[in-house]
């Protein structure tokens, strides 16, 4: 009943404000739609790029971080984390990354994997440091 009174007290300005902001937020979701499919992954350990690979070929690889080894695989045009020494395993829970701009990260182990699209061309197909 206090809630009912409160809702009645909402001014017109408030209602319009919330409505227009809700529209804005929904519109921002459209930005997520038009993204091209990825072609390459770039792996950064500790903010330094240590590994890139194309998304087409299936492969397993491991990246070393301060906590240990994070194992990842590329399969079916997507990259995912298989195992990681972090406590919460959020990186594994993030699932697949396949479109340009998608991001996977294991923050405790300081590893970030991003997908780059067609346009950002590079001279080499695979880079390992």
């Amino acid at each position: 009943m206090a809630l009912g009174a409160t809702l009645k007290r909402l001014t017109r300005f408030d209602r319009y404000l919330v409505l227009s902001l809700a529209l804005l937020v929904s519109a921002s979701f459209l930005l997520l739609w038009g993204r091209q499919s990825g072609s390459r992954i770039v792996v950064d350990a500790d903010n330094r790029t240590v590994f890139t690979a194309p998304l087409d070929d299936a492969r397993h690889f491991e990246i070393e971080g301060p906590l240990g080894t994070t194992r990842m695989e590329i399969a079916d045009g997507a990259v995912r984390v298989l195992s990681s020494p972090c406590p919460q395993k959020i990186c594994i829970g993030l699932g697949d990354a396949r479109r340009a701009g998608d991001l996977l990260a294991c923050v405790p182990n300081r590893i970030v994997v991003r997908i780059e699209g067609e346009k950002e061309g590079e001279a080499y197909d695979l880079l390992s440091r």
Partner: peptide
């Protein structure tokens, strides 16, 4: 993070903030 990909999370954050903002506002009222 230093990479523009993080802005892809913006819509989800904004949606969550919108809802919690409304709830907090009602509670404050």
């Amino acid at each position: 993070v230093r990479h523009p990909s993080i802005w892809l999370m913006l819509p989800f954050f904004l949606l969550f903030s919108l809802i919690s903002g409304i709830i907090n506002g009602l509670a404050a009222d």
